[in-house]
Structures are given as C-alpha cells and as structure tokens.
Computed example of a mutant assay.
Amino acid sequence: MELEDLVRLRRARDLMDREYAEPLDVPALARAALMSPGHFSRSFRAAYGETPYGYLMTRRIERAKALLRRGDLSVTEVCFAVGCTSLGSFSSRFTELVGESPSAYRDRPHDAGAAIPACVAKIHTRPVRNGEAKPGSAP
C-alpha cells in the first residue's frame, strides 16, 4: 500500500476517533480520505484488519463502556450519546464485543479499575470480538 494512502486512511481513522458520536458513514469517511467509497473500504480493511464500520462501532462501544461505568445514564441514553440510532443494534454489538449486555455491564461493580489511569484502562478494556485475542496477550 502506498504511503500516501496510509496517510489518507489515518485521516479518516482520526475522524472516527474524534467524531464517533456523529452520523458517519463510508461515503463521508471516504471523502475525508479523498478516496472512492469502495477503494476506501478495501484499503481500510487491508491497513487496519477491520471494516470502517467495525472500527467505528468499536470506538462507540469503548466510549459506551466508560459512560456505563459511571452509572448515571440509562442504556438508552448511552446508546444515543455515542452515536448509535438503534438500541437493539447497539445492545447486540455491545454484547458481541464485550461479552455481556450493556445493562449487565452497567449494573456490576467497577471499583477494581477505579485506581487505574484512563490511558492504561483503555488498553485493557478495549472491546474485542469474542474469540479474538485481548490486547497485550500472547499470540
């Protein structure tokens, strides 16, 4: 892959990291990367190992976990706060990536991680699909 394409893909990935709660779709992300939607999707998957939608949903679920740990918002409020428009799809994806429902995650104690700096907690609490290796684990 060309270095120029990687720079463009990074621009779109940075946009997803910053604007995860906004209504982002492949055509909008492709425009940010100055690519056609098809080329963008193929290149993104080749570079990052997942689809643009998969990456965006991982960011959204990661943020949802942080909001649910606070415990002051309902699952529905968290769903919309992170940019999801369907509670059913949000709950299904959350359960797929985290291994438990958003309600179960919200209701269990999270005191053990309270003293861990956010930058470290982010690495170890990053949502991964069931069956994938956890970040930092041996291959």
Results as ranks from 00 to 15, higher is better:
D25E: 14
L34N: 11
L24R: 15
D25A: 09
T51R: 10
F44G: 02
R31P: 12
L34G: 13
R18N: 09
P37Q: 05
H39C: 05
Y48F: 07
R45Y: 07
E22F: 12
A33W: 04
H39V: 11
H39T: 10
A21R: 15
L24G: 06
P27S: 11
E50N: 00
V26R: 06
S36C: 05
L24Y: 04
A28Y: 10
S43N: 09
R42Q: 10
P37A: 03
H39M: 14
P23I: 00
A46Q: 13
D25V: 12
A21T: 11
R31Y: 10
D25W: 12
D25T: 10
L29F: 06
V26M: 08
T51K: 01
Y53W: 12
M35H: 09
G54Q: 03
P37M: 03
P23L: 10
S41R: 05
G49N: 02
M16L: 02
R42A: 10
M35P: 06
A28V: 10
H39S: 13
P52K: 02
A21W: 15
R45N: 06
G49L: 02
A32S: 14
Y53C: 14
M57Y: 08
A30H: 11
M35D: 03
Y55N: 03
L24E: 04
P37G: 09
M57N: 11
A33P: 13
R45H: 09
A21E: 11
Y55K: 00
P23V: 05
L24T: 12
E19D: 05
D25R: 11
P23D: 14
Y53F: 10
A21K: 15
L29R: 10
A21H: 13
R31L: 08
P52W: 01
P23T: 07
E19Q: 06
R42K: 15
M57E: 08
Y53E: 13
M16C: 11
D17K: 11
Y20H: 07
S43Q: 05
Y20P: 12
E22C: 07
P52F: 01
P52G: 01
L34M: 12
R18D: 14
M57A: 07
A46L: 09
L56T: 01
Y55A: 04
E50C: 01
M16K: 01
R45C: 07
L34S: 06
P52Y: 00
F40Q: 02
A46F: 01
L56R: 06
P23M: 08
G54R: 09
Y20E: 13
V26Y: 14
E19L: 15
L29Q: 05
P37E: 11
A21D: 14
P52I: 00
L56D: 03
Y55V: 04
A28I: 13
M16A: 01
G54E: 04
D25H: 13
G38Y: 08
V26G: 05
E50M: 07
L56P: 00
G49F: 07
P52T: 00
S41E: 04
R31E: 15
L29A: 03
L34A: 04
L56Q: 02
P52D: 02
E22T: 07
V26C: 06
S41D: 05
Y48S: 02
D25I: 07
F40Y: 10
E22K: 15
